[in-house]
Structures are given as C-alpha cells and as structure tokens.
C-alpha cells in the first residue's frame, strides 16, 4: 500500500561526505567540484587540437566562447572584455551546475540561496570596486540620472540607490528560486507516479501516466530554464559591469 512518499525538499539536503564540521566536504561541494571539473575538462579537451576547421567538441567550445563574448561586447562594450574570464566562468558554472542538477540523484548547487548570493555578491562587489577605481567619485553619478528636474531628483536618486542595492538580491533570488521551484515541481510530479502506482496498483499505474508525461514535459522546460537562468545571470552581470565602466547612464 505505501508507495515511496515524495519529499520534494529532501533533494536539497546537504550531507557531509568527507570530514565533519562546518567546512566538511559535502554533496554540495562535490557537485561544485564536478561542475568545475566538467567545464575545465571539456574546454581543455575541446581546445587541445586547435584545428582551423573545428571538431565537434571544439565547435561547441567556440560556440560558448563567442556566445558569451558577444553578450559581453553587446552589453558592456569592448572595455567589458577585461571581465570576460569572470563572466564566462559565471555563465559556465551556472549553466553546467544547473544541467548536472537535472540528472536524477544529483544535487543542484544553485538551489541554495547562499551560493547564488555569493555569486551575485561577487558581481556586485566587482562593480562597486572597479567602478570606484576607474571613475572615482564620478561613479556616484550612476545614481543621478541627467535631465531630471531638481524637485524630483531626490526621489529619483533614492529609487536608483534602492534599485542598485537590490541588484544582488534580485540576481541571486531569481536563480535560486527558479532552480528550487523547478526541482520541487519535478519531484512532486515524479512522486505522484510512484504514489499512484503504490496506492492504486494497476489502475494507479495507468493514471500515473499523466503525471509522468507532465514530469517529462517539465524536464524539458527545466532544461530551458537551466540555460535561460545562466544566460539571464550573465547578461545582467554584463549590464551591471557596464554601469561600472560607463556610469552616468
């Protein structure tokens, strides 16, 4: 009678694998390591032959390179290319960890707010530090749009400041919430299948086709979301970096 009960939250548990204490090597750390290893392995393998006419793997690596490079150039101009390694690493890390997270029994690194918040803060701090180093106090012009009448300027400045400081929050929560919600949804629908078959037997198996189909469809959607969130994070990073390079709108 009792099917395996779906616990949509269980997949987000953090379990120490090696060592103990706060800095133990956990499943989260393991999947960060796998993500990093996959990216580095893929790129080094893809670029090992360096042929003029690319192999499939090299073509894929070039596709990623040109895609991110174009995103950076379009949003932050050629000066933004000095942040290209950073942006590229962010994009690849989020994309690959999201994709790996879609494999059953894996752990999704970006489903923990602290991880996405750390990534967002690295962007935010880069923007602030580089903005002040490059532009000095001129960077503060970011908060003072030109061509605004004096009497509403304080209000506009206040809004600009609030929107600026909410950036790391929105950047991190967007990615985190998408990953979390997607994986919970998947787990719940997949859980229906086992619960229906467990509770109702053959009839349950038959009815369970519906949530199974849904789970398959949502898996497809999650693939899209996994890429899209990596892209959104990347392009917003570029836009924020553009503010650091060219303040004053």
């Amino acid at each position: 009678m009792a099917g395996e009960s779906p616990d949509p939250i269980h997949q987000f548990n953090i379990v120490p694998l090696v060592g103990d204490g706060p800095l133990a090597f956990t499943n989260s750390a393991l999947f960060m390591a796998i993500t990093t290893a996959v990216i580095i392995g893929f790129l080094l393998l893809a670029t090992s032959s360096r042929t003029l006419v690319p192999s499939r793997l090299q073509s894929l690596a070039e596709l990623g390179y040109e895609f991110v490079a174009k995103t950076v150039r379009d949003s932050a101009g050629n000066e933004g290319m000095k942040f290209f390694p950073f942006v590229f690493s962010l994009f690849m890390f989020i994309l690959v960890s999201n994709m790996i997270g879609l494999i059953p029994y894996t752990f999704t690194v970006a489903s923990h707010l602290i991880v996405t918040f750390a990534l967002a803060m690295s962007v935010f701090l880069t923007v602030i530090i580089y903005g002040f180093i490059k532009n000095g106090s001129h960077f503060l012009k970011l908060f003072v749009p030109s061509g605004i009448p004096g009497y509403i300027l304080p209000l506009v400045v206040l809004i600009e400041i609030i929107s600026f400081f909410s950036r790391p929050i929105s950047l991190s929560v967007r990615l985190f919430a998408n990953m979390l919600a997607g994986h919970i949804t998947l787990k719940v629908f997949a859980g229906f299948v086992t619960m229906l078959s467990g509770a109702l037997g053959a009839v349950g198996l038959l009815v369970g086709i519906l949530p199974l189909l849904l789970a398959v469809a949502i898996t497809g959607l999650e693939l899209l979301v996994a890429f899209l969130q990596a892209y959104v994070f990347t392009i917003l990073t570029c836009i924020y970096l553009n503010d650091a390079i060219h303040p004053g709108h």
Partner: peptide
C-alpha cells in the same frame, strides 16, 4: 551550511576562474 558552501564555492569557482 553557509560557511561550508561559501568555502568550497570560493575554492572551486576560484579554480575555475583561474583556469579559464
């Protein structure tokens, strides 16, 4: 879990960044 995740994220993302 925050400290551990930040610690390992810094290490692995740092490695990734440097290799990239």
């Amino acid at each position: 879990n925050f400290a551990g995740q930040l610690f390992w994220l810094a290490i692995f993302f740092g490695v990734l960044l440097i290799v990239m």
